[in-house]
C-alpha cells in the first residue's frame, strides 16, 4: 500500500518550547492508524502540525506532496479533515449551519445530497436537531456533529483528536462503531489520537506510541495489544 500521509522526522513546538523531537509515521490510503501516548507526549501537536497549526521542521507529505509553507486552509482543501481537540463546533450556529460549513467548498451538488443522507443515516439525532443551535447538543451529539461535518468535507484523510474525551462508555462504543463503518464504506483513512488505548487498538490496524515527542514503539495494532511489556509500560492497562 502506498502511504497517503507521511511524516518524516517532524520537529515542532510552541515558541521556544519544543514538543516534537523528530516524529516519523505514515498512514496508508484507506487505513486506520492510532496515535497513542500519555498526556503531553505530543499527540495533539502532531495533528496540529499536519494541518499547519504549529510551525514545524522536517517534512510532511500528503499524497506525495509536501505540505511545507501551506496555510491551514490550503491543507484542508487538499482533502484532510481535522476534528480538533474539543471538537471545534461553532456553537453560535445551528446544527445545519455547522454541517453546511463542512460541505461549503464542494461543487458536486448531487454527491453532497447523497452524503447528507448517509450522514443522517449514521447520526439520526442530528436530523432531528437540524434547526437547533449547536450549543444545545450534548457532548456525544457534538462529537457526532463534528464527525458528520468532517465526513461532509469528503476527505481522503480524517484526523480525529480524542473522540472519546468526556463521553460515556456506551456513547464511545457507538461512535467508534460508526468511525469503523465510515472507514469501511468510503475508504477514508483515519489518523486517530486517543488516550483510551484499548479501544483505539481495536479499531486501528497500525499504531504508534509517542513518548515525550518521539515515537517509542510502533507496529501492528494486534501485535502491540498482545505484547504485555508494551501494554504495561506505554498503554497502562
Amino acid at each position: 500500500m502506498t502511504a497517503l500521509l507521511e511524516l518524516d522526522s517532524v520537529q515542532a513546538g510552541y515558541g521556544p518550547t519544543s514538543v516534537l523531537h523528530g516524529v516519523s509515521l505514515s498512514v496508508p490510503a484507506g487505513g486506520v492508524v492510532a496515535l497513542l501516548g500519555a498526556n503531553g507526549a505530543g499527540k495533539t501537536t502532531t495533528l496540529r502540525a499536519i494541518t499547519g497549526g504549529v510551525r514545524w521542521n522536517g517534512d510532511i507529505r500528503f499524497e506525495g506532496r509536501s505540505l511545507r509553507r501551506m496555510s491551514t486552509e490550503e491543507i484542508v482543501r487538499r482533502g484532510i479533515a481535522h476534528v480538533p481537540e474539543g471538537r471545534g463546533i461553532c456553537t453560535e450556529l445551528t446544527v445545519d449551519e455547522n454541517l453546511k460549513l463542512g460541505s461549503h467548498l464542494r461543487r458536486d451538488g448531487a454527491e453532497v445530497r447523497k452524503d447528507y443522507d448517509r450522514v443522517f443515516e449514521y447520526f439520526p439525532v442530528l436530523k432531528e436537531r437540524r434547526r437547533l443551535s449547536a450549543s444545545t447538543l450534548s457532548g456525544g451529539e457534538q462529537q457526532m456533529l463534528a464527525l458528520a461535518r468532517a465526513l461532509l468535507m469528503k476527505p481522503r484523510l480524517m484526523l480525529l483528536d480524542e473522540p472519546s474525551l468526556g463521553l460515556a462508555p456506551i456513547v464511545v462504543r457507538s461512535i467508534f462503531q460508526i468511525i469503523r463503518s465510515i472507514n469501511e464504506a468510503s475508504g477514508v483513512a483515519v489518523l486517530l489520537v486517543e488516550q483510551n488505548a484499548r479501544i483505539a487498538l481495536d479499531l486501528s490496524s497500525t499504531a504508534y506510541v509517542l513518548e515525550v515527542g518521539r515515537v517509542a514503539v510502533h507496529g501492528d495494532s494486534a501485535e502491540l495489544q498482545g505484547n504485555e511489556s508494551v501494554r504495561r509500560s506505554y498503554l497502562g492497562y
Binding site: 471545534g88 463546533i89 461553532c90 453560535e92 450556529l93
Partner: peptide
C-alpha cells in the same frame, strides 16, 4: 454561504480554518 462562513470566521476562527474557511 458567504454569510455563513463570515459568521463562522468571526466567532470561531480556529475551527473555521480547519473547515477550509
Amino acid at each position: 454561504t458567504v454569510g455563513l462562513t463570515m459568521r463562522a470566521a468571526a466567532h470561531h476562527p480556529e475551527a473555521s480554518r480547519l473547515l477550509g474557511v
